[in-house]
Amino acid sequence: MTTTQSRGGTVAASSAPPPARGGTTVHRPPLLPRLRKHWWSYVFLIPMILLFGAFTVWPMIASWWYAFFDWDGVGAATDWVGLGNFTEVLGNEMFWQAFWNSFLFSVVAICVEMPLALLFAILLNNHRLRGRDLYRLALFLPVVATTAVVGIVFAVLFDPAGGVVNDTLTGLGLIDRPINFLGSTTTALPTLMGIDLWKGFGITLIYWLAALQTVPKEIYEASRIDGANSGQQLRYVTLPMLTPIAIVILLLVFQRSLNTFDLVQATTQGGPVRSTDVVPTYIYRYAFDPFIQAPRYGFACAAGVVFGLLTLVITLMQAPLLRHRYKAGAA
């Protein structure tokens, strides 16, 4: 190491750093003068490294560390419990209930929202459809609205005592007595999933519309000359062409839907009887709920870490399948 540095130092002292050639072995100028040359760049990077390091990288590392302590946040974390928090999380039925609900939110988003949004995108991508910008706007508006606020508006709409939905349904004679949509263990979760779909639909629609823009028009023309009708075009041209981007969209939708917090917290707070609890609300309850006696930061961190690992496993499980499909799409 020292030899290369001293050798490089003489080179830099005698002449300017040699220009990098196109070959594979690039004669690199020595590190120190290069660092000095770029020192302003490093100054410019400092705020980002501080902010990002402190609020993204550090929390990821510290979560693991805190998870080994039984800690209520008062004073330093000294009560080392080893893997105790982890075994408690893994053995806690309520955690698995919350995880299962988080997972179901993803399943609905991937299996219902994504295909539905694709159908709308194909329809709205048609240049001859009048007013398509207006339709697109209407479908996109929920995305821009504050989740917590629209969640509460929905809670009022679905209210069993005088809410619009129940009034309309009873008025039409479709149901005999009002349904307590968000207040009963059987209907609360599906209702929230419906609201979540309404809220996220616009983003997925925009993803698909962007994806459709990437399909070259010439291919459609060529296939029409070959005698393909619009159904065949969709099956044999559009869908295969979309596969690579569809995978990106799938991952984006998966990430978003797994982190549902705002909607659940604002409407049901995980109730009734934890039937709508998701992992983020579960963690929130152990750390920040004002009604608990003492926060359990260590335990909540362990739950966060386990959740992260489980998500990672699910993402990796998708990987071989996705790679296979990606190849099929690219071929």
Partner: peptide, 30 residues
């Protein structure tokens, strides 16, 4: 040719794609 550029960009991108569960507690404590 900024030394360390690739490493910084790699860290940025990787943190975006690794699911890291909920890290609100260390953030709160910090």
């Amino acid at each position: 040719g900024l030394p360390g550029k690739k490493a910084i960009v790699a860290v940025l991108v990787v943190t975006m794609f690794i699911p890291h569960g909920y890290t609100i507690i260390p953030t709160f404590l910090l």
